[in-house]
């Protein structure tokens, strides 16, 4: 088992009111699984991804990834785990404007100690995703779709075991969306576990396991 969520809850309180963004979620993923969580905006999908990535700590429940209970890890160990084993494609534009496309893709490689410069690997990923010609461009000259592709290439730089993607086909045309989804399918076929959240019904068909999320609960 690569990922196991047990009774996972995330509760927020504002004054005397409180609500659950994520409620009693249970989920297991093995290597090579391709799971898609569909749901409306505000249903708790992004919060769930942040809990799985160790970016948020749960109010209760457990996240066990690759044998480690995330909440028992120090910031350093948790950051290292996220860097080495999880590829994260966040919602919106997450490309650093001060770095070139190539450096944005190489960036995760340098966030923990490694040898080499990852240049060839980054260029190969850019080529695979069809934007190798933009390697030396700065993000401000890229379209929304191109920025999304950069984020996807970046997620693969450290050969992750788990790929977390939050609305990865936003800003992409149908053809590009299809291309990206095929890329995820291929990654899953190569043993990477893929967990994708979306509200786009057109891409649900790519997943092997489909879930619905409503009011913080997973169905």
């Amino acid at each position: 088992m690569l990922l196991e969520l047990t009774n996972l809850c995330k509760k927020y309180s504002y004054g005397d009111k409180s609500f659950y963004a994520v409620r009693d979620v249970r989920l297991s993923l093995n290597s090579g699984d391709f799971a898609i969580i569909a749901g409306r905006s505000g249903s708790g999908k992004t919060t769930l991804l942040n809990l799985i990535g160790g970016l948020l700590s749960p109010s209760s429940g457990k996240v066990v990834f690759d044998g480690s209970d995330l909440m028992s890890l120090s910031d350093r160990d948790l950051s290292a785990l996220r860097n080495e084993k999880i590829g994260f494609i966040p919602q919106g534009y997450s490309i650093l404007s001060n770095l070139t496309v190539l450096d944005n893709v190489r960036l995760p490689y340098f966030l923990h100690r490694r040898r080499g410069d990852a240049r060839d690997r980054a260029l190969a990923l850019l080529k695979e995703i069809g934007i190798e010609h933009l390697a030396n461009a700065y993000p401000k000259s890229l379209s929304g779709g191109e920025l999304r592709r950069v984020a996807i290439a970046r997620a693969f730089i450290n050969n992750p075991k788990l790929l977390l993607a939050d609305e990865p086909t936003n800003d992409l045309d149908t053809e590009s969306a299809g291309y990206v989804m095929k890329l995820f399918s291929r990654a899953a076929a190569e043993g990477v576990s893929v967990l994708l959240v979306t509200h786009d019904p057109d891409i649900i068909a790519y997943g092997y396991r489909i879930y619905q999320m409503r009011d913080g609960r997973l169905y």
């Binding site: 970016l55 950051s79 996220r82």
Partner: peptide, 16 residues
């Protein structure tokens, strides 16, 4: 905020 959040989700420690 977004830049730091991006670095964080890519695996940067708070110290970094």
């Amino acid at each position: 905020k977004k830049e730091f959040a991006t670095l964080r989700l890519l695996g940067a420690t708070r110290k970094r």
